[in-house]
Structures are given as structure tokens and as C-alpha cells.
Amino acid sequence: MHLTYHQIVGRRVVDRDNRPVGRVVDLIARSPDDRTIRVTGLLVGRRALIQRIGRDRWNLHPVVVGWSEVADLDDEHIRLRTRRDDLRRG
């Protein structure tokens, strides 16, 4: 299945209890080798948005959701398999 970047960014993220976490602001990726780039996580929420528009120096520590925590993607939401309180900040 193919998805585009813009189909993921902006989607609402909810935890396993359907509690809102925020919207996806950006996708974090890593390059395990020179030829491949894999998405490893999502930057989520208002802190990520403020950091994204240029306030890096404030050390806002936005919510970072690892891809392994994503349980399901539908047209509107990204549902996590973890609880909101257990998410780490980047």
C-alpha cells in the first residue's frame, strides 16, 4: 500500500483509549544504509508545530511517537497501541 507524506501529516493521533494526542506535524526517518529511508516515527502536537516553524532554541521537547506504536491508520485518525501518558518527548 502506498501513502503520501501529505496524507499522513495533519492527521489526528489518538491513543488506545481514543484520547487525543495531537496532529501529526512531521515524519521522522532514518537511513539504515545509503539507499533507503524508512519512517521511524511521528512528531505530534503543538510543541512540534512551534518547533517546526522555527523555535528550535526553546527546547520544547515535542511528542515523538515511534512507528512501532502505531496500531492503525484510517482516513481521519492514527490510532496508537499505547496510552497518551506513556509517550516520550523528543
Binding site: 506535524v25 512531521d26 532514518r30 537511513s31 545509503d34 533507503t36 529511508i37
Partner: peptide, 14 residues
């Protein structure tokens, strides 16, 4: 060829 993690640290696609 790719996005260099050394250059950018963490790669943020957007």
C-alpha cells in the same frame, strides 16, 4: 546519495 544523518542529525522529512 541520501539525506545524510551526519548533516541533519535526525531526518525530518517535511
Amino acid at each position: 546519495k541520501a539525506v545524510s544523518p551526519e548533516r541533519y542529525g535526525r531526518i525530518e522529512l517535511g
